[in-house]
Design a protein around this nucleic acid. Structure first.
Lengths: 156, 156
DNA sequence: GAGAACATATGCAATCATGCAAATGTTGCA
DNA sequence: TGCAACATTTGCATGATTGCATATGTTCTC
Protein backbone atom coordinates (compact mmCIF):
# COMPACT_ATOMS: atom_id res chain seq x y z
CA UNK A 1 0.00 0.00 0.00
CA UNK A 2 2.03 2.93 -1.25
CA UNK A 3 1.29 6.43 -0.12
CA UNK A 4 1.78 8.89 -2.89
CA UNK A 5 2.93 12.26 -1.68
CA UNK A 6 2.01 11.99 1.95
CA UNK A 7 -1.67 11.50 1.33
CA UNK A 8 -2.10 9.51 4.50
CA UNK A 9 -0.22 11.98 6.66
CA UNK A 10 -2.30 14.78 5.22
CA UNK A 11 -5.49 12.79 5.77
CA UNK A 12 -4.61 12.21 9.40
CA UNK A 13 -3.78 15.86 9.97
CA UNK A 14 -7.03 16.89 8.30
CA UNK A 15 -9.07 14.42 10.30
CA UNK A 16 -7.57 15.77 13.48
CA UNK A 17 -8.21 19.32 12.36
CA UNK A 18 -11.78 18.45 11.53
CA UNK A 19 -12.25 17.28 15.10
CA UNK A 20 -10.63 20.40 16.51
CA UNK A 21 -12.77 22.65 14.35
CA UNK A 22 -15.86 20.62 15.15
CA UNK A 23 -15.10 21.25 18.79
CA UNK A 24 -15.02 24.96 18.15
CA UNK A 25 -18.21 24.86 16.16
CA UNK A 26 -19.90 22.80 18.84
CA UNK A 27 -18.85 25.15 21.59
CA UNK A 28 -20.03 28.12 19.60
CA UNK A 29 -23.47 26.57 19.27
CA UNK A 30 -23.72 25.11 22.75
CA UNK A 31 -25.11 28.21 24.43
CA UNK A 32 -27.68 28.72 21.72
CA UNK A 33 -28.89 25.17 22.26
CA UNK A 34 -29.92 26.11 25.77
CA UNK A 35 -32.40 28.48 24.16
CA UNK A 36 -33.61 26.63 21.08
CA UNK A 37 -33.43 23.10 19.77
CA UNK A 38 -31.04 22.16 17.00
CA UNK A 39 -33.79 22.00 14.34
CA UNK A 40 -34.97 25.40 15.48
CA UNK A 41 -31.48 26.80 15.28
CA UNK A 42 -31.30 25.55 11.70
CA UNK A 43 -34.31 27.68 10.94
CA UNK A 44 -32.66 30.73 12.40
CA UNK A 45 -29.51 30.11 10.39
CA UNK A 46 -31.39 29.78 7.13
CA UNK A 47 -33.40 32.92 7.78
CA UNK A 48 -30.25 34.72 8.77
CA UNK A 49 -28.62 33.82 5.49
CA UNK A 50 -31.58 34.28 3.18
CA UNK A 51 -33.83 36.79 4.83
CA UNK A 52 -37.60 36.41 5.26
CA UNK A 53 -39.00 33.36 3.52
CA UNK A 54 -42.42 31.99 2.84
CA UNK A 55 -43.38 29.30 5.31
CA UNK A 56 -43.61 26.63 2.65
CA UNK A 57 -40.31 27.59 1.10
CA UNK A 58 -38.64 27.45 4.45
CA UNK A 59 -40.13 24.05 5.14
CA UNK A 60 -38.79 22.81 1.85
CA UNK A 61 -35.34 24.26 2.56
CA UNK A 62 -35.30 22.29 5.77
CA UNK A 63 -36.64 19.11 4.25
CA UNK A 64 -39.65 19.22 6.50
CA UNK A 65 -43.33 18.64 5.92
CA UNK A 66 -45.31 21.85 5.71
CA UNK A 67 -47.80 20.89 8.34
CA UNK A 68 -45.05 19.79 10.66
CA UNK A 69 -43.23 22.98 10.06
CA UNK A 70 -46.20 25.23 10.61
CA UNK A 71 -46.31 23.95 14.14
CA UNK A 72 -42.59 24.34 14.61
CA UNK A 73 -43.03 27.94 13.64
CA UNK A 74 -45.79 28.20 16.25
CA UNK A 75 -43.31 27.20 18.90
CA UNK A 76 -40.62 29.51 17.63
CA UNK A 77 -43.04 32.40 17.52
CA UNK A 78 -44.06 31.58 21.08
CA UNK A 79 -40.38 31.59 22.00
CA UNK A 80 -39.92 34.98 20.41
CA UNK A 81 -37.36 33.90 17.82
CA UNK A 82 -39.34 34.52 14.66
CA UNK A 83 -42.47 36.32 13.55
CA UNK A 84 -45.11 35.50 11.00
CA UNK A 85 -45.64 38.55 8.87
CA UNK A 86 -48.29 38.97 6.23
CA UNK A 87 -47.41 39.65 2.69
CA UNK A 88 -49.65 42.53 1.61
CA UNK A 89 -49.47 41.31 -1.99
CA UNK A 90 -50.75 37.87 -1.16
CA UNK A 91 -52.83 37.27 1.88
CA UNK A 92 -52.51 33.53 1.61
CA UNK A 93 -48.76 33.61 1.97
CA UNK A 94 -47.05 33.95 5.31
CA UNK A 95 -43.55 35.24 5.61
CA UNK A 96 -41.38 34.04 8.44
CA UNK A 97 -38.71 36.41 9.64
CA UNK A 98 -36.26 36.67 12.50
CA UNK A 99 -36.97 38.79 15.54
CA UNK A 100 -34.17 40.78 17.07
CA UNK A 101 -33.70 37.93 19.52
CA UNK A 102 -33.44 35.42 16.70
CA UNK A 103 -30.98 37.53 14.82
CA UNK A 104 -28.99 38.07 17.97
CA UNK A 105 -28.80 34.39 18.75
CA UNK A 106 -27.27 33.59 15.39
CA UNK A 107 -24.95 36.56 15.63
CA UNK A 108 -23.74 35.46 19.04
CA UNK A 109 -22.90 32.02 17.72
CA UNK A 110 -21.07 33.40 14.70
CA UNK A 111 -19.18 35.84 16.81
CA UNK A 112 -18.13 33.27 19.33
CA UNK A 113 -16.92 30.93 16.64
CA UNK A 114 -14.86 33.67 15.11
CA UNK A 115 -13.45 34.66 18.45
CA UNK A 116 -12.40 31.13 19.30
CA UNK A 117 -10.71 30.66 15.97
CA UNK A 118 -8.88 33.93 16.42
CA UNK A 119 -7.75 32.80 19.84
CA UNK A 120 -6.29 29.61 18.42
CA UNK A 121 -4.61 31.37 15.55
CA UNK A 122 -3.23 33.96 17.92
CA UNK A 123 -1.05 31.26 19.41
CA UNK A 124 0.69 30.73 16.10
CA UNK A 125 3.63 32.66 14.76
CA UNK A 126 3.08 35.01 11.90
CA UNK A 127 4.83 32.61 9.56
CA UNK A 128 2.58 29.79 10.68
CA UNK A 129 -0.48 31.90 10.07
CA UNK A 130 0.74 32.66 6.59
CA UNK A 131 1.18 28.95 6.03
CA UNK A 132 -2.33 28.35 7.34
CA UNK A 133 -3.81 30.85 4.92
CA UNK A 134 -2.03 29.24 1.99
CA UNK A 135 -2.67 25.64 2.99
CA UNK A 136 -6.31 26.14 3.92
CA UNK A 137 -6.82 28.22 0.81
CA UNK A 138 -5.79 25.27 -1.28
CA UNK A 139 -7.84 22.93 0.85
CA UNK A 140 -10.91 25.13 0.59
CA UNK A 141 -10.58 25.34 -3.16
CA UNK A 142 -10.30 21.59 -3.40
CA UNK A 143 -13.21 20.94 -1.06
CA UNK A 144 -15.56 23.52 -2.50
CA UNK A 145 -18.51 24.98 -0.65
CA UNK A 146 -20.44 22.31 1.18
CA UNK A 147 -24.01 21.86 0.03
CA UNK A 148 -26.51 23.56 2.30
CA UNK A 149 -28.37 20.28 2.76
CA UNK A 150 -25.22 18.66 4.03
CA UNK A 151 -24.67 21.26 6.68
CA UNK A 152 -28.29 21.07 7.71
CA UNK A 153 -27.79 17.52 8.85
CA UNK A 154 -25.86 18.85 11.81
CA UNK A 155 -27.64 22.19 12.01
CA UNK A 156 -24.74 24.09 10.40
CA UNK B 1 -8.33 48.12 13.97
CA UNK B 2 -4.94 46.77 13.05
CA UNK B 3 -4.48 43.22 11.98
CA UNK B 4 -1.28 41.80 13.31
CA UNK B 5 0.25 39.20 11.07
CA UNK B 6 -2.73 38.33 8.93
CA UNK B 7 -4.87 37.19 11.81
CA UNK B 8 -8.04 38.14 10.01
CA UNK B 9 -7.08 36.46 6.76
CA UNK B 10 -6.19 33.32 8.67
CA UNK B 11 -9.45 33.50 10.61
CA UNK B 12 -11.45 33.76 7.42
CA UNK B 13 -9.61 30.85 5.84
CA UNK B 14 -10.12 28.78 8.96
CA UNK B 15 -13.80 29.64 9.16
CA UNK B 16 -14.25 28.56 5.58
CA UNK B 17 -12.31 25.39 6.23
CA UNK B 18 -14.44 24.67 9.26
CA UNK B 19 -17.51 24.84 7.06
CA UNK B 20 -15.97 22.61 4.41
CA UNK B 21 -14.91 20.04 6.99
CA UNK B 22 -18.30 20.26 8.68
CA UNK B 23 -19.82 19.42 5.36
CA UNK B 24 -17.65 16.33 5.11
CA UNK B 25 -18.45 15.31 8.65
CA UNK B 26 -22.15 15.85 8.04
CA UNK B 27 -22.14 13.79 4.87
CA UNK B 28 -20.26 11.02 6.61
CA UNK B 29 -22.92 10.85 9.29
CA UNK B 30 -25.95 11.39 7.08
CA UNK B 31 -26.47 7.76 6.13
CA UNK B 32 -26.13 6.61 9.70
CA UNK B 33 -28.86 9.05 10.70
CA UNK B 34 -31.28 7.15 8.53
CA UNK B 35 -30.73 4.23 10.88
CA UNK B 36 -30.40 5.82 14.30
CA UNK B 37 -31.05 9.21 15.84
CA UNK B 38 -28.23 11.59 16.58
CA UNK B 39 -28.33 10.95 20.34
CA UNK B 40 -28.25 7.25 19.60
CA UNK B 41 -25.31 7.66 17.30
CA UNK B 42 -23.48 9.45 20.08
CA UNK B 43 -23.90 6.35 22.19
CA UNK B 44 -22.40 4.19 19.49
CA UNK B 45 -19.44 6.52 19.12
CA UNK B 46 -18.70 6.51 22.83
CA UNK B 47 -18.94 2.74 23.04
CA UNK B 48 -16.78 2.45 19.98
CA UNK B 49 -14.09 4.56 21.58
CA UNK B 50 -14.26 3.20 25.10
CA UNK B 51 -15.58 -0.31 24.86
CA UNK B 52 -18.40 -1.79 26.95
CA UNK B 53 -19.55 0.53 29.71
CA UNK B 54 -21.91 0.28 32.62
CA UNK B 55 -25.27 1.77 31.86
CA UNK B 56 -24.96 4.44 34.50
CA UNK B 57 -21.48 5.40 33.41
CA UNK B 58 -22.61 5.70 29.84
CA UNK B 59 -25.55 7.87 30.87
CA UNK B 60 -23.18 10.14 32.74
CA UNK B 61 -20.81 10.34 29.77
CA UNK B 62 -23.71 11.50 27.67
CA UNK B 63 -25.05 13.90 30.23
CA UNK B 64 -28.32 12.04 30.42
CA UNK B 65 -30.52 10.97 33.27
CA UNK B 66 -30.16 7.28 34.07
CA UNK B 67 -33.83 6.52 33.83
CA UNK B 68 -34.05 8.35 30.54
CA UNK B 69 -31.07 6.53 29.29
CA UNK B 70 -32.25 3.12 30.34
CA UNK B 71 -35.14 3.57 27.96
CA UNK B 72 -32.92 4.85 25.20
CA UNK B 73 -30.96 1.67 25.56
CA UNK B 74 -34.23 -0.26 25.29
CA UNK B 75 -34.79 1.30 21.90
CA UNK B 76 -31.26 0.72 20.75
CA UNK B 77 -31.40 -2.90 21.84
CA UNK B 78 -34.64 -3.27 19.96
CA UNK B 79 -32.93 -1.76 16.93
CA UNK B 80 -30.09 -4.24 17.23
CA UNK B 81 -27.35 -1.66 17.77
CA UNK B 82 -26.31 -2.56 21.30
CA UNK B 83 -26.75 -5.37 23.79
CA UNK B 84 -27.15 -5.44 27.53
CA UNK B 85 -24.72 -7.95 28.93
CA UNK B 86 -24.53 -9.04 32.53
CA UNK B 87 -21.44 -8.59 34.53
CA UNK B 88 -20.82 -11.96 36.28
CA UNK B 89 -19.00 -10.17 39.08
CA UNK B 90 -21.88 -7.88 39.88
CA UNK B 91 -25.36 -8.86 38.99
CA UNK B 92 -26.71 -5.40 39.66
CA UNK B 93 -24.56 -3.81 37.00
CA UNK B 94 -25.47 -3.94 33.36
CA UNK B 95 -22.86 -3.53 30.67
CA UNK B 96 -23.85 -2.01 27.38
CA UNK B 97 -21.87 -3.07 24.36
CA UNK B 98 -22.02 -2.67 20.61
CA UNK B 99 -23.42 -5.35 18.38
CA UNK B 100 -21.74 -6.07 15.08
CA UNK B 101 -24.29 -3.81 13.45
CA UNK B 102 -23.49 -1.02 15.88
CA UNK B 103 -19.78 -1.39 15.37
CA UNK B 104 -20.29 -1.50 11.63
CA UNK B 105 -22.34 1.68 11.60
CA UNK B 106 -19.63 3.66 13.32
CA UNK B 107 -16.97 2.09 11.12
CA UNK B 108 -18.87 3.02 7.99
CA UNK B 109 -19.07 6.63 9.09
CA UNK B 110 -15.40 6.78 9.97
CA UNK B 111 -14.43 5.18 6.74
CA UNK B 112 -16.53 7.48 4.65
CA UNK B 113 -15.16 10.54 6.35
CA UNK B 114 -11.63 9.37 5.73
CA UNK B 115 -12.41 8.58 2.13
CA UNK B 116 -13.89 11.98 1.47
CA UNK B 117 -10.96 13.75 3.02
CA UNK B 118 -8.58 11.67 0.93
CA UNK B 119 -10.54 12.60 -2.16
CA UNK B 120 -10.20 16.29 -1.43
CA UNK B 121 -6.52 16.02 -0.64
CA UNK B 122 -5.96 13.98 -3.75
CA UNK B 123 -6.78 17.08 -5.76
CA UNK B 124 -3.84 18.91 -4.24
CA UNK B 125 -0.26 18.83 -5.43
CA UNK B 126 2.26 17.06 -3.32
CA UNK B 127 3.71 20.38 -2.21
CA UNK B 128 0.30 21.59 -1.18
CA UNK B 129 -0.25 18.47 0.84
CA UNK B 130 3.05 18.99 2.59
CA UNK B 131 1.96 22.52 3.39
CA UNK B 132 -1.35 21.18 4.70
CA UNK B 133 0.39 18.75 7.00
CA UNK B 134 2.60 21.49 8.40
CA UNK B 135 -0.08 24.13 8.72
CA UNK B 136 -2.70 21.84 10.20
CA UNK B 137 -0.09 20.35 12.49
CA UNK B 138 0.52 23.78 13.94
CA UNK B 139 -3.21 24.47 14.07
CA UNK B 140 -3.92 21.19 15.82
CA UNK B 141 -1.24 21.86 18.39
CA UNK B 142 -2.66 25.30 19.05
CA UNK B 143 -6.26 24.12 19.24
CA UNK B 144 -5.66 21.03 21.34
CA UNK B 145 -7.99 18.08 21.48
CA UNK B 146 -11.58 19.16 21.81
CA UNK B 147 -13.29 18.08 25.01
CA UNK B 148 -15.50 15.07 24.53
CA UNK B 149 -18.47 16.97 25.93
CA UNK B 150 -18.04 19.63 23.30
CA UNK B 151 -18.18 17.16 20.47
CA UNK B 152 -21.16 15.47 22.01
CA UNK B 153 -23.22 18.58 21.47
CA UNK B 154 -23.25 17.80 17.78
CA UNK B 155 -22.99 14.06 18.15
CA UNK B 156 -19.30 13.96 17.20
C1' DG C 1 -68.91 34.49 -10.50
C1' DA C 2 -67.56 29.53 -9.97
C1' DG C 3 -64.28 26.24 -9.59
C1' DA C 4 -59.41 24.92 -9.74
C1' DA C 5 -54.97 25.63 -7.82
C1' DC C 6 -52.45 27.18 -4.10
C1' DA C 7 -50.71 28.32 0.94
C1' DT C 8 -51.31 27.60 5.41
C1' DA C 9 -53.42 25.62 9.49
C1' DT C 10 -55.54 21.89 12.19
C1' DG C 11 -56.99 17.07 13.61
C1' DC C 12 -55.11 12.83 14.60
C1' DA C 13 -51.21 9.87 15.68
C1' DA C 14 -46.55 7.98 16.46
C1' DT C 15 -41.62 8.12 18.08
C1' DC C 16 -37.96 9.90 20.73
C1' DA C 17 -35.73 12.38 24.40
C1' DT C 18 -36.09 13.93 28.87
C1' DG C 19 -36.93 14.29 34.08
C1' DC C 20 -38.61 13.12 38.75
C1' DA C 21 -40.07 9.86 41.94
C1' DA C 22 -40.54 5.33 43.38
C1' DA C 23 -39.97 0.22 42.91
C1' DT C 24 -37.00 -3.75 42.30
C1' DG C 25 -33.08 -6.25 42.80
C1' DT C 26 -28.00 -6.63 44.29
C1' DT C 27 -24.02 -5.92 47.08
C1' DG C 28 -21.57 -4.79 51.12
C1' DC C 29 -21.05 -3.67 55.80
C1' DA C 30 -22.07 -3.82 60.65
C1' DT D 1 -28.89 -11.51 59.49
C1' DG D 2 -30.45 -7.07 58.55
C1' DC D 3 -30.01 -2.62 56.98
C1' DA D 4 -27.76 0.82 54.11
C1' DA D 5 -25.87 1.93 49.71
C1' DC D 6 -25.95 1.15 45.02
C1' DA D 7 -27.61 0.07 39.95
C1' DT D 8 -31.16 -0.38 37.10
C1' DT D 9 -35.88 -0.35 35.78
C1' DT D 10 -40.65 1.33 35.75
C1' DG D 11 -44.59 4.65 36.43
C1' DC D 12 -45.99 8.95 35.30
C1' DA D 13 -45.60 13.19 32.66
C1' DT D 14 -43.99 16.75 29.24
C1' DG D 15 -42.44 18.67 24.94
C1' DA D 16 -40.33 18.43 20.25
C1' DT D 17 -40.35 16.54 15.69
C1' DT D 18 -42.55 14.24 12.16
C1' DG D 19 -46.25 12.54 8.75
C1' DC D 20 -50.79 12.02 6.55
C1' DA D 21 -55.16 13.61 5.61
C1' DT D 22 -58.23 17.32 5.76
C1' DA D 23 -60.11 21.97 6.53
C1' DT D 24 -59.82 26.92 5.85
C1' DG D 25 -58.87 30.80 3.43
C1' DT D 26 -56.80 33.14 -0.85
C1' DT D 27 -55.69 33.85 -5.63
C1' DC D 28 -56.21 33.02 -10.37
C1' DT D 29 -58.38 31.60 -14.43
C1' DC D 30 -62.06 30.48 -17.38
Amino acid sequence: MTDQGGLTAATDATLTASRALLGIVARSVADALDEVTLPQFRVLVVLSAEGPLRLGTLAERLGANQSTFSRSVDRMVAGGWVVRSENPDSRREVLVDLTEAGRGLVAAVTERRRREIRAVLGRLTEEERTAVVRALGALNDAAGEPAAEDLLVLGL
